[in-house]
Amino acid sequence: MEQAEKLQQLRRALDEYAAGNGPSLFDPEEEVAKAAVRKRALGLLDQRARSRHELTERLLQAEFPAEVVARVVDDLAEVGLINDEDFAFEWVRQRHARRGKSARVLDQELKEKGVDAATRGAALKQIAANDEAAMACALAEKKARSLKVAPADRAESDKALRRIVGVLARRGFAQGMSLRIAREALEQRITELRD
C-alpha cells in the first residue's frame, strides 16, 4: 500500500470520527468518573506504596462506585503503579531492617493488606533465620543498655528481664528465642555494670 493511499485512509477515519460515525477511542463520561477516583488513588500512592487490596478498600471507603474503582485499579496495575510482589518485598525489607519486625509479624501485616500467601512467602524468604536472631539480639542488647545500675536482687533482675522480653515480644519474635536472647543480653549487661 502506498503512502498516499494510507494517508487517504487515515483522513477518512478521522473524518468519520469527527462526524461521530467512527469507533469511540474513549468514553468521555467514563473518563470523568475515573478522573476523581484516579486522583484519589494517586494521592494515596504518593503517600506510600500500597497493595492492590489495600488501595481498593481505601477507595471504596471513600464511597467511589465499585465498578469505577475496579477499572482504575486495573489501569494502575497495568502501568505498574500497583504490584503486590514489589510491594510485599519492599514492605518486608524496610520493616525488618528499620523496625526490627519478625517474619511472623510481617506475614500477618501483609495478610491484613490482602497479599496472597504465595507472594507473602516469596517476600519473607529474604529474612533468613540467622538474620532474625541477629535482629532480636541487637534489640535485646539495646534495651539491656538502658539498665544503668545492676539489679540488687532477684525481683529487680526479673523486672529487667521482662522489659527486654517485652521489646522482643512486641516485634513478634518467638517466645523461647526471646527469653534466651533476653537472658543473655541481661547477663552481659549486668557483667558490664559490675566490672
Rank of each mutant, 00 (worst) to 15 (best):
F89A: 14
Q94K: 15
D75H: 03
V72R: 08
F89Q: 13
Q126N: 08
L124Y: 01
V92E: 00
Q126S: 13
G100S: 08
Q94A: 12
R93M: 09
V72L: 09
V92H: 00
A123Q: 08
A118Y: 04
K125N: 10
K113T: 11
Q126I: 05
A70L: 08
A123N: 09
G80N: 06
W91I: 03
K101H: 12
L106E: 06
A118I: 12
I82W: 01
A103S: 13
Q108M: 08
E78V: 00
V68Q: 06
A128G: 10
V115D: 03
T119D: 04
T119V: 15
V79Q: 03
E85A: 15
E109K: 04
A70N: 08
L81G: 02
A122E: 11
E85N: 11
L110T: 04
D75G: 12
R98E: 14
V105M: 13
K125W: 01
A128M: 09
D74E: 14
D75E: 15
G121P: 04
G121N: 13
K113A: 15
L110I: 06
T119E: 05
E112N: 15
L110K: 08
N83D: 15
S102G: 09
G80Y: 04
A70R: 12
D84F: 06
Q108S: 11
A122I: 06
K113D: 14
A88P: 07
V73F: 10
V72Y: 02
G100R: 12
V105S: 13
A118K: 12
W91F: 14
A117T: 14
E90A: 13
E90I: 07
L76Q: 03
E78T: 04
I82P: 04
K101N: 06
E85V: 15
I127W: 00
L110W: 07
S102W: 02
A122G: 06
D84Q: 03
G121T: 10
H96Q: 13
D107G: 13
A97D: 11
I127P: 00
L76M: 11
V69M: 05
S102H: 04
R98L: 14
V72D: 05
W91A: 10
F87V: 08
A128N: 05
I82A: 02
Q108H: 10
R98W: 14
E112R: 15
V73L: 07
A128Q: 13
Q108E: 11
Q126Y: 01
E112H: 14
G114W: 11
R95Q: 11
I127F: 00
A77M: 02
A123I: 07
A118N: 09
